[in-house]
Amino acid sequence: MTKLLLSVHVLAAILAIGPIAVAASLFPRYARQSAPGGENRGSGGSGGNTDGRDAGADGRAAGIAAFLHRVCRGYAVVGVVVPVFGIATAVQLDVLTDAWLIVSLVLTAIAAGILALAILPQQERLLELPADTADEGSGSAAAQTGPAAARLSALTGVFNLLWAIVVVLMIVRPGSTTGA
């Protein structure tokens, strides 16, 4: 039973947290590009052109950003199984009170909090920003999007770093007889 629980835990971590890490990391780039007057690499012109060349690039970037947000939101729900099966595995292995596991659980809770309370809401705000500020001039939305996207990138970096630490703790398991 322990091997089954551990297998589901590891597979869930790879299949749920991995896509969140990638999608959340890519999101700020496309949010910046989708803002009116924002970065439009590969569109054939500079941001803010009114000849229609950038409208397609803005729309495509906005669509990609929206898709990445849906990936983050959807996989966040599925990601709940990671700590559930992790705790079940820890109970089977009788390591629920080990320091490395407690630290892992605390870091997991912090990462989940960052995702639910900061990353996902900030992504939603960035998705809504271009539509809310488009009538104020294209520079306004781009000016607001840039710093917000930079903050989101930093939050995503912290989220990913926390998960990397948890993975190392799960592999090394300090103090265990199988640890390094």
Rank of each mutant, 00 (worst) to 15 (best):
residue 1 M to Y: 12
residue 5 L to H: 00
residue 7 S to I: 12
residue 9 H to C: 01
residue 11 L to A: 15
residue 12 A to S: 15
residue 12 A to Y: 03
residue 13 A to R: 09
residue 21 A to F: 06
residue 22 V to S: 08
residue 24 A to K: 04
residue 25 S to E: 00
residue 26 L to Y: 10
residue 28 P to Y: 08
residue 28 P to K: 08
residue 28 P to T: 02
residue 29 R to H: 14
residue 29 R to F: 13
residue 31 A to C: 01
residue 32 R to G: 11
residue 33 Q to L: 05
residue 34 S to I: 03
residue 34 S to R: 03
residue 34 S to N: 00
residue 36 P to K: 05
residue 36 P to S: 01
residue 39 E to H: 09
residue 40 N to M: 14
residue 41 R to K: 11
residue 41 R to T: 10
residue 41 R to V: 09
residue 42 G to A: 05
residue 43 S to N: 01
residue 45 G to Y: 04
residue 46 S to K: 12
residue 46 S to H: 11
residue 49 N to R: 12
residue 50 T to P: 09
residue 50 T to S: 11
residue 51 D to T: 10
residue 53 R to P: 09
residue 54 D to T: 13
residue 55 A to D: 13
residue 55 A to L: 07
residue 56 G to S: 02
residue 58 D to P: 01
residue 61 A to V: 06
residue 64 I to D: 07
residue 65 A to Q: 00
residue 71 V to H: 05
residue 72 C to K: 01
residue 76 A to Y: 02
residue 78 V to H: 06
residue 78 V to R: 08
residue 79 G to V: 03
residue 79 G to D: 04
residue 80 V to I: 15
residue 80 V to K: 06
residue 81 V to T: 13
residue 86 G to D: 00
residue 88 A to N: 00
residue 88 A to L: 15
residue 91 V to N: 05
residue 92 Q to W: 02
residue 93 L to W: 01
residue 94 D to Y: 08
residue 94 D to F: 01
residue 95 V to C: 00
residue 102 I to D: 07
residue 104 S to M: 03
residue 105 L to K: 02
residue 106 V to Y: 05
residue 107 L to I: 06
residue 108 T to C: 04
residue 109 A to H: 04
residue 109 A to E: 04
residue 115 L to C: 06
residue 115 L to I: 09
residue 118 A to H: 12
residue 119 I to K: 07
residue 120 L to G: 10
residue 120 L to A: 03
residue 121 P to V: 01
residue 125 R to T: 13
residue 126 L to A: 05
residue 126 L to Y: 00
residue 127 L to C: 04
residue 127 L to Y: 02
residue 129 L to Q: 14
residue 129 L to R: 14
residue 131 A to T: 11
residue 132 D to I: 13
residue 133 T to C: 12
residue 133 T to M: 15
residue 133 T to F: 14
residue 134 A to F: 08
residue 137 G to Y: 05
residue 139 G to F: 07
residue 145 T to S: 15
residue 145 T to E: 10
residue 145 T to M: 15
residue 146 G to H: 15
residue 147 P to Q: 11
residue 148 A to L: 14
residue 150 A to S: 14
residue 151 R to A: 12
residue 151 R to K: 14
residue 153 S to P: 07
residue 153 S to D: 11
residue 154 A to S: 12
residue 154 A to I: 12
residue 155 L to E: 03
residue 156 T to W: 00
residue 158 V to M: 10
residue 158 V to K: 01
residue 159 F to Y: 12
residue 160 N to F: 03
residue 160 N to Q: 05
residue 161 L to G: 11
residue 162 L to E: 09
residue 162 L to P: 00
residue 166 V to G: 10
residue 168 V to W: 00
residue 168 V to G: 08
residue 170 M to N: 02
residue 170 M to W: 06
residue 171 I to M: 11
residue 171 I to V: 15
residue 174 P to S: 01
residue 174 P to F: 08
residue 177 T to P: 01
residue 178 T to A: 13
residue 179 G to R: 07
residue 179 G to H: 10
residue 180 A to G: 13
